[in-house]
Design a binder for these strands. Sequence first.
DNA 1: ATCTTATGTGACATTTAATGTTACATAAGA
DNA 2: TCTTATGTAACATTAAATGTCACATAAGAT
Lengths: 150, 150
Amino acid sequence: MRADNRLPRVLHALLHMAEMKGPATSSQLAKMLGTNPSVVRRTMSGLRDAGLLISVKGHGGGWSLKKPLEEISLIEVYEALGQPQLFAIGLSQSGSGCLMEKAADQFTANALAKASSAFQAELREVKVSEIAHQFKNQLESGAGRKQHQI
Amino acid sequence: MRADNRLPRVLHALLHMAEMKGPATSSQLAKMLGTNPSVVRRTMSGLRDAGLLISVKGHGGGWSLKKPLEEISLIEVYEALGQPQLFAIGLSQSGSGCLMEKAADQFTANALAKASSAFQAELREVKVSEIAHQFKNQLESGAGRKQHQI
DNA sequence: ATCTTATGTGACATTTAATGTTACATAAGA
DNA sequence: TCTTATGTAACATTAAATGTCACATAAGAT
């Protein structure tokens, strides 16, 4: 499967939007993200439906934040995207009804469930504004000193 | 991406192999797993290289366990498969060098890293024999009572 | 009113990494 | 030497994501 990049891309877009005065058009965001406007509209529509963004048609229109980054946690973004499939690993699902297969699938599913819980727990703890702060820190350290980079 | 089923499939195969007297041929395993012999050989070769299985050519040959299921943890199986890509979610990786993108990627990668740790920690705690025990429990409850199923 | 700039949306192409398939070399028992 | 296996490479298929294109719709600008 091709990797799903929507989460980091949308986060990236939110950071740019927070630094803009007016709305960002799909074309502008597409250039920032290295994709095209249709992909932006398709991807952002979920965030609008979830109440994180507003979209406006016509002259001077585009996409804007409905609330500040301090009030948006990563889990909200993930959910607004429709909770994209997290794993590239799946179950056997041969449909044979073999009880050994079922047992193997159950243990696999259990390990995946623990991973998913950890992932979502982390997303719940982080606000998008924290990413913005890290960006600003990197700006500073990138300008003068390099020795603090890991 | 298409889901990677190797982990649950291999676990399923190990359970069958533990119940067989002699070696299991790739054809036999392929029927049990709902695939074909080449896939079995390709998949099992990693477990042989990792010292979990032995493969023998010619008459009476096939695949056998090199050690009992009690001594094989799920993490060993996962590693023997070459640690298949766990996530369907990836980073932006546009290569633009945008620091906002980097910050978004770092936070995404961090959440994925926590998920991966949880996944591997769970795999480390479980032996393949435990899956075999669950299979036997399901056999019992499936034979007589159904009321304990969830 | 009409033009221009946007989003909204559906259909289809492309990409990518997995599994599936086929063919044949190689090893070893019968 | 025949038959049964694994070993392996090459290629086909599949699935799910992103990429692309076309056109409808809405709203400010002229």
